[in-house]
């Protein structure tokens, strides 16, 4: 079996999840605590990848990344980078595609914390920054873990978007889900089955670990 598509999938999922973690913390904090007009609009935009068919996202990204349209042309002329058919393009697509899977659990985690926690921290002289990183985040570890894992798993399962903008290049954009699709198309069921089994097993293991860890974290909290 060729392991390259699997390795590529996990590389993509890891990089995407790490980027999203950094990006989503301020967004989730802002959505959880800030008061502003047009919150509905912001939430709708962030949540769109949840409901949009991946082919829609893929189609627009294909046009956006193409050098014959202004965005792709701009990126290519400034950075000399072509996003369509490249690994960096896949990363950007995955970040957009998995954004709500990172933002929403973290926001929910932050909102579920009692307001007194924040208030106590402010009263004791901590600023917003310290309160966020030293008080709020450590208290919503299960939410952070859930968010990270959901994002990771969602990126592993990404198919439609990659199929549209990837170009199926071995070692660059040919991820496991696309490899499975190709093998089925070529009537090569044994090979498809091998990839599928690995994804099946890995996904189960990831979720098992998350739920076990989350359960034990919650138990600690409840007993204390």
């Amino acid at each position: 079996m060729d392991f390259q598509p699997l390795l590529l999938t996990f590389k993509l999922a890891t990089i995407t999840s790490l980027i999203l973690l950094v990006v989503s913390l301020p967004i989730a904090y802002w959505l959880a605590f800030a008061k502003f007009k047009g919150r509905g609009v912001v939430e709708a935009i962030i949540g769109m990848p949840l409901v949009l068919p991946p082919s829609v996202i893929g189609f627009y990204l294909l046009l956006a990344f193409s050098p014959s349209y202004w965005f792709g042309n701009f990126i290519e002329s400034i950075f000399g980078l072509r996003l369509v058919f490249s690994f960096s393009g896949l990363v950007i697509a995955s970040v957009l595609y998995s954004l709500p899977f990172m933002v929403y659990p973290i926001r929910a985690g932050l909102q579920s914390l009692p307001a007194s926690l924040r208030e106590a921290s402010y009263t004791l002289g901590k600023n917003e920054w310290d309160t966020f990183f030293k008080v709020l985040l450590p208290n919503c570890k299960p939410a952070l873990l859930t968010a990270f894992v959901l994002t990771f798993a969602h990126t592993v399962g990404e198919f439609g978007v990659v199929l549209m903008i990837g170009g199926n290049i071995p070692g660059v954009t040919k991820v496991a889900s696309v490899a499975i699709y190709n093998e089925v198309e070529a009537l090569n069921y044994p090979a498809a089955n091998q990839y599928a089994m690995v994804l099946f097993a890995v996904t189960f293991l990831i979720l098992l670990v998350v739920y076990s860890v989350n359960n034990s974290l919650l138990r600690v909290r409840q007993s204390s």
């Binding site: 014959s68 369509v84 058919f85 549209m164 170009g167 199926n168 290049i169 699709y181």
Partner: peptide, 20 residues
């Protein structure tokens, strides 16, 4: 330089959109 379309139609899309 090769990129692979999933079908002849997708390859056509890559070409006519100027992505390739």
């Amino acid at each position: 330089k090769l990129v692979y379309g999933e079908s002849i139609a997708q390859t056509a899309q890559y070409i006519t959109s100027g992505s390739a």
